[in-house]
Amino acid sequence: MRTAPILAALLSASTAHVGEGARPSRLDLDHGIAATLPADWQADDEASAPVAYDTKGYRRLQIVCHSESCRRSQESCTFVLKNDRVEGDDDASRLSGLYATALSRYARLRAAVKNTGEQATLRRSLERETIGPREWWVLETQARPGFKSALFAETVIDGWYVGAICRTCETGEIRHGAARAMLSSVDRRDSDGF
């Protein structure tokens, strides 16, 4: 009876290369979508566990940077997936549909500010941006001193919603570099070279 979950866990671990550390690795997000983790980024245990969604239909995978430079910036990302497809004819229209109304854009921005914490401000408002082969909705927040600012990005791949929240203590103009590199790798699993 326990064979199937164990097998799934082993398969998942084999694709995630959990714990391999210093070189890029491929992380299976589900629905045939995968992301390439930068060197020294590592997925949490959830990535190696059998695919599961919470009662609200979300799956969250946390990726943490363990590099020397990240010791100061404390970078991490959380991928969020839904087990329901986004309605629409194609991914472009589905992506547009995510924030088709002003209220949904307002709610997204407010949720991002709230998620970043008290006294957080918007560093960059909600905009479409091409990262890698895909278009994403992207916004950035600026946390109060001593707290992590965040990059919020969302896309739709084959009808499946993929969201990412990447946090950093970095306060300079250039930030979320590794996170953007990871986002640019998010695509169908069959389109990669792994």
Partner: peptide
Amino acid sequence: VDPYRLPLDVALPLFIDMFGDL
């Protein structure tokens, strides 16, 4: 009254757009 109030320059255009779609 929102403790996580969006800045006016962000909220105002969205508020104006809401007349059209909400």
